[in-house]
């Protein structure tokens, strides 16, 4: 056992002091003003929940990053790792008979284990919104629009939303064994054409589907790309995935479209996404500062089958970008 001075804090945790807090408050003020104006009501889920709340929908990746402890009665409890899972539980239980669509928003901390030495926080602020009970493309657009307007409202102009639809590749992956599907998922996520071509050549994938897989890393661009993608769609689910994105594209304004990159290799979100899925990238941040998408089957895992769509932004990352901009 090593003795450390009391001034140390555990790796990945930190104090926020006056100036940090002022900036955080400014972001929160802009966020709540916008969200409330759009009819989103704030909810504050508990800081810790039974771990199943996060493991049921979030998939193995989230499950491996929970900060857990044993509760008084011996059950495993986890610190909130994801607002969407908690809100899905609330919406499927206490709010099960509330009229839909339900518009909910939040801002607060999430806790996730990170490998030591990567310089990542284990405790971070997020803000976000969920719209529950609306399965339409108009619903997708409402949430995307709220995200875009939030970025502008907090004062970040140079950003791109990388928008995909997991239904384009899901049918291809579903026919494979777990290991093969995971290997292919990794190759799609890294845009590794050589690995995709090798997987196709290894033979588990039918020729038509193979061609779409190898082309997948090139299916990225503005709205025109979707026309080419439609030709490579295999099966009804993939075709309607493209149709959905084209419909979203038509519903967006030209100014909004300038912030959207369509990317059919965008599949890296949490396990519960079912339709559109996106990540937010901003100039000055090396990795995604926000994620979101549609999760039509998540609420069913908590007892009420409702379609839903939402997003979360990393508030700390927004604050850092604003600080960078102020220093220039």
């Amino acid at each position: 056992m090593q003795f450390l001075p009391i001034s140390h804090v555990p790796v990945g945790s930190q104090d926020l002091l006056a100036e940090d807090v002022r900036l955080l408050r400014r972001i929160h003020a802009a966020w709540y003003a916008l969200a409330e104006a759009r009819g989103y009501e704030e909810v504050i889920p508990p800081t810790f929940e039974y771990e199943e709340v996060f493991t049921r929908g979030g998939g193995p990746e989230l499950a491996s990053r929970l900060v857990r402890f044993v509760d008084q009665d011996g059950r495993l409890v986890a610190l909130r790792a994801d607002f969407t899972s908690s809100i899905a539980r609330v919406a499927a239980s206490r709010l099960a008979s509330a009229p839909v669509p339900l518009r909910l928003c939040y801002a607060g901390k999430v806790f996730r284990q990170e490998a030591a030495g990567e310089g990542r926080r284990r405790e971070m602020f997020q803000l976000g919104a969920e719209m529950i009970g609306d399965a339409s493309a108009e619903g997708d657009v409402e949430v995307i629009r709220l995200l875009l307007d939030t970025m502008h409202a907090v004062g970040i102009a140079d950003f791109q939303v990388n928008l995909g639809n997991v239904e384009f590749v899901r049918p291809l992956l579903e026919r494979l064994s777990f290991e093969e599907a995971e290997a292919l998922r990794g190759a799609i996520d890294r845009k590794d054409r050589a690995a995709l071509a090798a997987a196709v050549a290894a033979g588990e994938i039918e020729p038509g589907a193979g061609r779409s897989l190898v082309e997948l890393p090139t299916l990225i661009g503005r709205g025109e790309m979707l026309i080419r993608a439609a030709e490579l769609a295999i099966g009804e689910s993939a075709s309607s995935a493209i149709e959905r994105l084209r419909r979203i594209d038509r519903l967006l304004t030209p100014a909004e479209r300038a912030h959207i990159v369509y990317d059919l290799g965008e599949i890296r979100g949490l396990g519960y996404y079912t339709g559109i899925q996106f990540e937010v990238f901003a100039a000055g941040a090396g990795r995604a500062i926000g994620v979101g998408g549609r999760y039509d089957h998540l609420l069913a895992l908590y007892g009420a089958d409702r379609p839903a769509v939402g997003f979360a932004l990393e508030t700390d990352a927004l604050a850092e970008l604003l600080t960078q901009a102020a220093q220039r």
């Binding site: 140079d158 950003f159 791109q160 990388n162 845009k191 090139t218 990225i220 661009g221 990159v261 990317d263 990540e279 990238f281 901003a282 100039a283 941040a285 090396g286 990795r287 995604a288």
Partner: peptide, 15 residues
Amino acid sequence: IVNRARHKLRLDDHQ
């Protein structure tokens, strides 16, 4: 290897 954010922010240059 390519940075995920830069790839989207300068998509045309990267492609």
